[in-house]
Design a protein around this nucleic acid. Structure first.
Lengths: 231, 231
DNA sequence: CCAAAAGTGTTTCCGATACACCCATGA
DNA sequence: TCATGGGTGTATCGGAAACACTTTTGG
């Protein structure tokens, strides 16, 4: 079966810039190694074609990531649409890029159809990327950096229970600068949207830190009441 | 001539949410009345199909606006890409939306190919809009509201020379709240990116206000030096 | 008892806000 | 001389930033 139109049309794809944190709190990006040309054997962002029979781009990027990484319901937001001529050597391909955040324990990379390998790469040492994916990653970093201060999206990168130190480390990683421990704690606890649990981290040879939990319901309530998250 | 593909493809369009200020400082949006169906005779955002032979979306939206409004070089930024099934009753149409800011004196609406009428509408009293254009306008408003505080884009809405009062009115219109005159002046002048001229407004029956100018070069210099605009 | 990270308060400083009067112009 | 908006300074308050020591745990 084939489809015929009066004017040329672009292929429509989606790409996802998926951020995660490793155990030492360093930012990582999820990449796949392409099985087929163009850019065969080159690292690239996970993504693929949008099924025009019944998908929109939101659905397409969620599906692709599920296929390639075995993760559902990760935090995803539209980033930018790339449409420059020549960004795909074959033909006109317009790509709607998304960025996403994943808890490291919620994601098990697996090989899907389009990839022989799926791997977390440190954001500071990315390999050569296919297409214009380097630009897309760059834009994703900037977006998240701008957004993290005004919306509590950082929690999407942490396990459900986390220490204040790991939360601080996350902000330091994203913002690219050190924060004062006491001021950070004061400020984050003052927002009243993270609550202490009775649990503590284990497996450390020093005093174990208390574990906290992000209180989404309380946050939603506060937002409705005019509260503005800011860190 | 026709074009055939193995899989169905969407038509790709661009839409522009163009903001302007009227003489009284109220926010307006530029709309066109559609000449052809669907939504014939309905008001809609200016825009149209992207020419896949040689345009990207940036070029397409600039061209469409030039055709419909006789304005070049207006401030334009990509807003969001809309791809929901059914947003165009005919077939799958994916639209890359942009928002734009225009100086009122730089824009003369004219009727182009797709429109019988081009008109500024007050943002508070928009007519019924075609497609999902109401959502697009809404998103445009939110974006500009979020952005205006951290980037000096407001000047794009004012003539080259402007009074401090009109600048304040602009911020009040976008932010939706009143600002204190003295504090506003202090803050905006402290940034040192707007410079006084020796000219004054005319045609008023009270003391004429001094005219100022946005100093783009100085702003660029400061940004490079790490300066962050904020109001 | 040593190493390592957790946890905790106070002071200082700067920017945000609140606030009221005189000035220049045209009618 | 009146009406209208232009233009100016100061005091107060609150949040941001700077800053160092004690506590808990495992080894």
């Amino acid at each position: 079966m084939s489809y015929t139109y009066d004017y040329p049309r672009p292929a429509l794809t989606v790409d996802g810039v998926i951020f995660g944190l490793d155990v030492k709190g360093r930012m990582k990006v999820l990449l796949i190694k392409r099985l087929k040309g163009p850019f065969k054997d080159c690292w690239a962002l996970p993504g693929g074609f949008v099924d025009m029979e019944d998908e929109d781009t939101d659905a397409a990027v969620a599906r692709e990531l599920e296929e390639e990484t075995d993760t559902k319901n990760l935090y995803l937001e539209q980033l930018y649409t790339f449409s420059k001529k020549g960004r795909d050597p074959r033909e006109r391909v317009v790509s709607v890029a998304y960025y996403g955040l994943v808890r490291p324990d919620a994601l098990k990379p697996k090989a899907g159809d389009d990839a022989k390998e799926v791997k977390w790469w440190p954001i500071k040492r990315l390999p050569k990327l296919a297409f214009d994916h380097r630009d897309i990653v760059k834009m994703g970093r900037e977006r998240i950096k701008g957004k993290v201060r005004y919306q509590p999206i950082g929690f999407e990168l942490l396990p459900e229970l986390f220490t204040l130190r790991s939360l601080q480390g996350l902000y330091e990683a994203i913002l690219g600068r050190d924060l004062d421990k006491r001021n950070f704690r004061k400020k984050i606890l003052a927002t009243d949207i993270i609550t202490p649990t009775e649990e503590f981290e284990g497996g450390v040879k020093h005093r174990p830190a208390r574990l906290y939990r992000f209180d989404q319901k309380e946050y939603d309530r506060k937002v409705k009441a005019g509260f503005n998250f800011e860190i």
